[in-house]
Design a protein around this nucleic acid. Structure first.
Lengths: 208, 208, 208, 208
DNA sequence: AATGAATGAGCGTTCATTCAT
DNA sequence: GATGAATGAACGCTCATTCAT
């Protein structure tokens, strides 16, 4: 049986919705464990305590379940992190601390890391969802005059790329303070901050 | 039958080498079309006009062919681009023009773009190969005093991530001058260049 | 389609059990025809009128089906023969008549003979099963004071070897009264009976 | 490269015969290592330092090479053992000591044990060859009045079956003095010797 | 709505065999 | 005669998908 990461509300739902949620939860878990391509429908349904045929009552194919699962997963992470950084007032700090928390979470709970890496190049929607998460923080920094750059989708994607790279490397080589720091600095430089200031800021925001 | 991207010299080679090259060419094409995971050995051999069993005379498994194919693909591109930018003397310009050419090439010949995107997260070696390509240019820029940053692997990977993102977006949405420009600017900012100068440099280096 | 040697009761069984039985029946037949190593899963399933994939709903691999099939085959034969010799009171006679009946049956229904020969050297369990069948009769003979030898596994195996040899020869050269008789005599001598008495006993027990 | 167990004379032979011998030697080795069914032609030829195609210049199929190899192997063993027991004058002792030596050799050099077990049920000729080996000793025992039984093929086969069983068990469970002794006793009883005398004889012949 | 047995195309892989060199 | 690249049928096995229950 799968932990209910995301569907604790399931009790309030009808039977159909409950089964659907169970499948999504299970998919998140299995994809995280086995990777995107190796998550077979049989394994997903079994982990959910359901029969394989049940899958087809709710989804047309594996892809459709996967994109839903990825969306649910990232949305929940975003909510949690947003809460955790709500007291940071500096927009830039908010961006790099959030980013670092995403990475951090994935290193400690590879479940999420792998699903993010795995989904990154497979699901268009997923990239958009992820990128959007930092939009409000970026706009905050802009309003605070901390960056002169126009905030657009490409910039969001670029930041996400740096985050995904950091996750990917640390998943492979283990947690690494230098990588975290340099990733934060790189994000800041990408936002137009000069190297020296970027270094100071990153150090202070991440490690006090 | 597959175009001989990389083995035009095949006529000079022995039979064994010719077949081997044909398989690599075919693999490049099929991986580009179907993606990394979906490129079956049968399809690769069929596209090469060979029997499926022939594959195993030359490679132990799909992975080994794939990494070879990816390596060949990127190596050839790198060589060509290096030649094309040999007259640029400014290290930073060299980096962003090279990067832009990689992107440009993949947009015009999606075969290569897709294989790069596809291999990016699957083959460790591949990432290393790609990253290394810009090392000499980065070091040149460093020697020229154009960037104060230490040149290390992570920085190379970060630049590559931006390139891969640019490829990915333009493959999906079509060629886009703004994306090219902003990617070059982003690379420069990542290297510590101030936004305004980055903008000028990018504009000038890419579009004269 | 395959005769239902062992699963005549199939009508009473659930669908799953019916299919499983069909596979075992089919395996028995195919192994008998083609030999142990050449009985492919495809052929077994086809002979059962099922799809090859169905096999894997019921067995993990070929070996597991084979050992089950062999076990079923020998168990059924043993039961029948036990019943047929239940009125023989002399332990030694019981042993050699049972043995002769096993051989006899395999000559008339080569299906069984070949499966026994085929499985003999491939499945450890199978040898143990077969050998055990005569244990009770041997112990009976011992209690009756008809043999002074200790009854142990090796002795059982030795008797089985003589039976398998007899089967093997008669499968090749056809039914042969002399071979049957001499096999019975050999078993008796193996059990310590003097040649002359062995001859008399064998003649009388087998042919009245 | 393969040791030349049986074809040291190869130097005197023509090239064709030399290659043929090399294949037979190699087959013996590979069959012994991998078993009968798993000895692929590629492996046999490779172990002989030859190309796989070469096989077909000398043999029509795997079976034909195998039977030749088995024949060569057993013939050589028989010669050696015959020499080793040439000073034993008692026919029965000769039989059981020879038998024990065959078994012994296979336990110490599983190469031969496995090939004998492996070939036993696959090659008709092989069985005949093996059985014939003890014919002269059996006839000697008969002439010496040590057994009253008629010496025929079946009897030879029966003795061989007991030997093969002994090999098989000891290959699986390791060398075992009791098994050797009981096998010798069983052969003697099979030849009509009373259990008590069989016990004495076996003990004395095998272990002095 | 949920089941799970059955399906069969497709996978990667092995290997006896052919044949041009 | 020897070679070894090429072959392609066959293998064991996986899995998304269907459908009767």
């Amino acid at each position: 049986m799968v932990d209910r990461y995301f569907s604790n509300k399931s009790l309030k739902l009808g039977k159909r919705e409950r089964t659907r949620s169970a499948l999504i939860d299970s998919a998140i878990k299995v994809i995280a464990e086995k990777g995107f391509e190796s998550a077979s429908i049989k394994e997903i349904t079994q982990a959910a305590g359901l029969a394989n045929g049940t899958f087809y009552n709710h989804f047309t194919d594996r892809e459709s379940l996967a994109s839903e699962a990825a969306g649910v997963a990232i949305f929940e992470i975003a909510l949690e992190i947003k809460e955790e950084v709500k007291d940071i007032e500096d927009g830039l700090d908010k961006v790099i601390v959030s980013s670092d928390k995403v990475v951090d979470r994935t290193i400690n709970a590879p479940t999420w890391g792998k699903i993010i890496i795995g989904a990154w190049h497979h699901l268009d929607d997923f990239q958009q969802d992820v990128a959007q998460i930092m939009r409000s923080d970026l706009n905050l920094a802009k309003r605070q005059g901390l960056t002169s750059l126009p905030i657009n989708k490409l910039l969001e994607y670029q930041i996400c790329s740096l985050i995904v790279l950091s996750i990917s490397l640390q998943l492979k080589n283990g947690r690494n303070k230098a990588t975290r720091l340099e990733t934060a600095e790189a994000i800041l430089r990408l936002l137009g901050i000069a190297p020296a200031e970027a270094k100071q800021r990153a150090q202070k925001a991440l490690f006090g």
